[in-house]
Amino acid sequence: MACISSALVVGGSIAGMNAAIALARQGVRVDLVELAEQPLGASLAFSGRAAETLVELGIYDEVHATGTPFGPDSTAVSIHDSTGRLISAGPKRPTWPGAVDAIAVYRPVFLDVAEAAAKRLGVRVRKGVTYETIDNGADAVAVTFTDGETGSYDLLVAADGIGSRTRGLIFPDAPKPKFGGQLSIRWMAPGPAIEGEGWYVSPVGRLGFYYLPQGMVYVPSVIDMPEWRWLSDEDVRSIFVELLDSMTAPPVAELRSRFDANAQLIGRPFDWILLPDPWFSGRVVLIGDAAHATSAHMGMGGGMALEDAVVLGQSIADAATLPEALAAFMGRRFERVKLVVETSVRLGRLEQEKAPPSENAALLTRAFAALGEPY
């Protein structure tokens, strides 16, 4: 039986919406508020133990049906040079009996699936709303909302992203996000699948791609940017075109032929943060990017958010009191998440130092082996 009866989740993205599911499955009455009216973004990938969280949340089959599963024969993590010559098959990932396929899914589709599941469990979801004030009291969290409503909850789960307002309120001395020295540019290229899925590397940067069943090819890319600087849409476009033009591999040439004036790019610096243990104070706990945002070098940011959600639900169900539950949550999450954040930062630095791909692959292999242990 859950040690709380009610919870407010702030933020309706990966960590927040799935935390709402996990808590509701334990019988907790959950309200969720999310400022964005519609989910945005590109692709998400869930692999290893993180993919198993989808089973526990009860949404694996639906996500599998709407996404792209990656079995053991997938080439999505292979590495090629700019001409298309295979350099490496990529890092080795552990397997275990009963392991489920990794899945890539279009982010808006995934969040629609998760929201529908949350609502079926009775979660009250309000869009375009967030909190105005919170009072983290001894017996409850009293909340006023931007639409004039008020509420009182046993627990507030802050899943409000790397720029978390809640983190600043609850932990005023918390570290600020740090720039990792690289730029991420993502593109949802229209059209059918392209043979040769994997990563391609040139002196300008690297890009990879895989197909999504919504009729598009997801193209993430990483370019070194030693100093943080503001980039206009035209700046991002110019950098991405330079990257495409630096490669002659036939799959990249096909992508280049699809790139036109209507192409929409998402350019973001790789920022990261790791909030020290604990991520909770009183009746407020931070999860997901609010506590541990990372770069995409391991492809595990979304997976760690899902694991947070599931472990929080388990901890609330297994403990006699909320303080015991939150302490147990931290005991299971901090070192695991620290591994992902610190490995991702190190991988970014190795790329900037022009280390051989084999060094990156070895580091990834060791990290994935550790993450193969149950969460």
Rank of each mutant, 00 (worst) to 15 (best):
A290K: 05
A290C: 05
W272M: 09
L322P: 00
V311Y: 00
A290L: 04
G303K: 02
E324F: 00
A327R: 11
H297L: 15
F329G: 07
S295N: 14
L326W: 04
D308Y: 03
W279Y: 08
P323W: 02
A325V: 04
R283W: 08
F270Q: 13
P278H: 08
I273A: 13
M304A: 15
A319M: 01
E324Y: 01
A296D: 13
L312Q: 06
L322Y: 00
G301S: 09
H292L: 03
A320Q: 11
A319I: 01
V311W: 00
M330H: 09
A317Y: 00
H297C: 09
F280G: 14
V284N: 12
G288D: 08
A325G: 04
V284A: 13
W279D: 11
A293G: 15
I287Y: 05
D289W: 02
D271H: 14
T321S: 13
E324V: 10
G303E: 02
R332P: 00
L312R: 05
R332A: 13
A320Y: 00
G303V: 03
Q314W: 06
L275A: 09
A320L: 08
A291H: 06
T321L: 01
G299Q: 06
S281N: 14
P278L: 09
F280Y: 15
M298K: 10
R332F: 00
P278I: 10
F270Y: 13
A296Y: 02
G288A: 10
P278K: 10
R333S: 09
M304I: 09
S315C: 15
I287G: 14
A317H: 09
E324D: 15
M298E: 06
L326G: 12
P323C: 12
Q314F: 02
L274S: 10
T294W: 03
A320K: 08
D308W: 02
M300S: 14
A325F: 01
M298G: 08
S315H: 00
R333I: 05
A291M: 05
F270K: 05
A296P: 14
G303S: 03
W279F: 08
P278A: 12
D318A: 15
P278F: 04
L312I: 07
I287L: 14
W272D: 15
L322F: 01
A319D: 01
H292T: 05
D308L: 05
P323D: 11
A327H: 06
R283V: 12
G302V: 07
S295P: 12
R333N: 05
G288W: 01
M304V: 12
L326K: 10
I287A: 13
I273D: 07
R332T: 01
R332N: 05
A325L: 07
P323I: 10
Q314H: 12
D277P: 07
L286R: 09
A296W: 02
H297A: 14
E307L: 08
F280M: 11
F329R: 03
D308C: 06
V284D: 11
A319Q: 01
L275M: 10
D318T: 13
D289Y: 07
F334T: 14
L306D: 03
L275N: 04
S295E: 04
T294D: 11
G331I: 06
R333V: 07
A317C: 07
G313S: 11
T294E: 06
H292G: 06
S295C: 10
I287S: 12
D271N: 15
T321K: 01
L326E: 11
D318W: 01
M330D: 12
S281Y: 04
F329M: 06
P278D: 11
P323A: 13
D318K: 12
G288V: 09
M304K: 10
A319S: 15
